[in-house]
Simulated scan of single mutants.
Amino acid sequence: MDSVGFTAPPQDGTDRTADIPAGPDVGMPAELALLRNEVKTLRRALASRANIDMALGVLMAVYQCTPTDAWLILVDVSQHTHVTLHDLAERVTASTHGPAPSKPVRDALRASAARHAAARHGSPGPAPDASS
């Protein structure tokens, strides 16, 4: 399950819909509540995904990196700054038309981008920052 409560479909081909109670035993109100909750969760996941995709584009433009590196940078900074991926993506995209993210987040983004660029080019990259 990801940060917005979305669980990816199983890779083994099993049908997860079998876990959802349905039919006369559950009743329409209970089934309707389950479906409404699922729709709410899927909408939140879609909105979050769109924001994350925009943040990836910003990182790719700013740091001239690949989509994979942009994803790794976003995940790395999220983990090291204890900011959820969704919140970090919002901060990155908001910085295109408002204030920049906080200095610790900007520093973490730069350091992570430098590490991933160095790894892509086969050099060891900068030493980790002791203040992190």
Rank of each mutant, 00 (worst) to 15 (best):
M1I: 13
V4Q: 10
V4H: 00
T7K: 10
P9N: 04
G13E: 05
G13K: 08
T14E: 08
T17M: 13
A18G: 07
I20W: 08
P21Q: 08
G27R: 13
M28Q: 10
E31V: 15
L34W: 03
E38K: 12
V39D: 08
R43V: 04
L46K: 15
S48H: 02
I52R: 01
I52D: 00
A55N: 04
Q64T: 10
Q64G: 10
D69N: 13
A70H: 00
W71S: 07
L74G: 03
D76E: 11
S78G: 14
S78Q: 04
S78M: 05
S78L: 01
Q79A: 15
H80K: 06
T81N: 05
H82Q: 12
H82K: 11
T84W: 11
T84G: 14
D87L: 04
A89N: 02
E90H: 08
T93F: 06
A94Y: 07
A94W: 04
A94M: 07
S95R: 05
S95I: 02
H97K: 12
A100E: 15
V105H: 02
V105W: 00
D107Q: 12
A108L: 01
A111Y: 06
S112N: 01
S112M: 00
A113M: 01
A114Y: 04
R115T: 10
R120E: 13
H121S: 15
H121F: 14
P124L: 10
P126M: 09
P126C: 04
P128G: 05
D129L: 05
S132R: 12
S132H: 06
